[in-house]
Design a protein around this nucleic acid. Structure first.
Lengths: 218, 218
DNA sequence: CCAATGTATTCTGTATACACAACACTAAGG
DNA sequence: CCTTAGTGTTGTGTATACAGAATACATTGG
């Protein structure tokens, strides 16, 4: 096995993302570089590099003399992100070869079923969902589009992880996924696109409705 | 007047972008940090920070022990970028309040006319085009979408700047802009979206056809 | 007591220093 | 002659050092 060969800045980046997702890094909180660097056991240099990378992905903000801050949660931003994801993934479907889509559609149907049956615990819901979308996008030949999707999804992810309540309606998600998958299997891209948009917007709405508004004060 | 208060890394970032657009930084060229830093009159630190920011925007690549490289020009990537821009700007239109769009449509018609009449010199074509699109997007309330658009547009820009030949058909662009603007003024968003997609794809195609394939070897 | 200015402290932004990986070149062995 | 191990050099990745901005605190004048 080829062993991982990663530089510190990317490891730090991953760790910061993890902390943002678990809530260990509180939204809106300002970052003390020396303290955080010490906590992570690295110097300020790779930490700052990770922060800068995350900043240009929109996951962190900075003001000139004041340093970096985890971006506050904003219902508005979350609502903004959903249609962007929907549009991007829709485009990905439209650009994928139709026959490939049909094949993938079948796999997706199976996955959606498994998803429903598994009674997945909450921590897994998101990674399952991720996996499902990854499979769907796997036949899209537009590399740059996939990059953009991944970047935006990063921001979306944060809201999912922090706000997903215990009682997420998993069956609902599975049903929506199944609808998309069936349309794809039949080669009906417009229908799939429509279902996909519903999936994103409903998903966002579900999460937002269940979330305590307290999260957004920060 | 409030005087500019920018840190070095953003200034370096701008300078690097400028060099990429003028061709001073050759596509595919690998970057020697000490040399480039000296050339810019700064230390490696802000230079690296700028490089990292540009990397996560997709404008620069890096390999672990090998450092940074200006990304090579790729016809494929350029072709990939166009539909993404089209989809994103289309979404922006769909999310904009219809009455605002109508008002903006009128301004855009005027701008398109001016564009045609001005017989603009080549260096100005792109910034005019930019300005036009900026006005069009000015009524879109989705901040995050605008961020994503700006980021992707950055990559697209590079191709425009490097490949736009002397004999760009300016009237063609103006005509396409006028079509979009008219549709907006009439509040016909679907028509505007359709025209917009044509604008992006045709624009990309025009540039690509006129470009010597020699550019892509790097 | 409050306002305003001066001073101390903290933390960012930038520069420099250091260690090790990657690459180039040479030399020895087949 | 080709291959490969050894050696030197260059350049990145990371750590540390320094300078100045921002903030908090104290002090003085009203």
């Amino acid at each position: 096995m080829a062993i991982e060969r990663k530089n510190l800045r990317s490891q730090v980046r991953d760790e910061l993302l993890a902390r943002m997702r678990t809530g260990l890094a509180k939204p809106g909180e300002s970052i003390n570089e020396v303290q955080l660097a010490a906590e992570l056991g690295v110097s300020r240099t790779p930490l700052r590099e990770a922060l800068i990378a995350l900043e240009s992905e929109g996951q962190i903000t900075s003001e000139n003399g004041k340093g970096f801050r985890f971006v506050p949660l904003s219902a508005g931003e979350f609502e903004d992100l959903a249609p962007v994801m929907a549009a991007l993934e829709s485009l990905a479907l439209e650009l994928s070869p139709i026959d490939e889509l049909k094949k993938v559609g079948e796999r997706l149907v199976a996955l959606a079923d498994a998803f429903k049956d598994e009674l997945v615990e909450h921590s897994l819901v998101i990674s399952r969902d991720d996996e499902w979308h990854a499979v769907m996008l796997s036949v899209c030949p537009n590399r740059r589009l996939l990059d953009v999707i991944e970047s935006v999804r990063g921001s979306f992810h944060r809201y999912e992880s922090l706000l997903v309540a215990e009682d997420v309606k998993v069956e609902r998600v599975a049903a929506e996924h199944a609808a998309i998958a069936r349309a794809l299997a039949e080669g009906d891209v417009p229908a799939a696109v429509e279902a996909l948009k519903v999936n994103w917007m409903q998903g966002m709405r579900r999460i937002l409705d269940n979330a305590s508004s307290a999260y957004f004060t920060a």
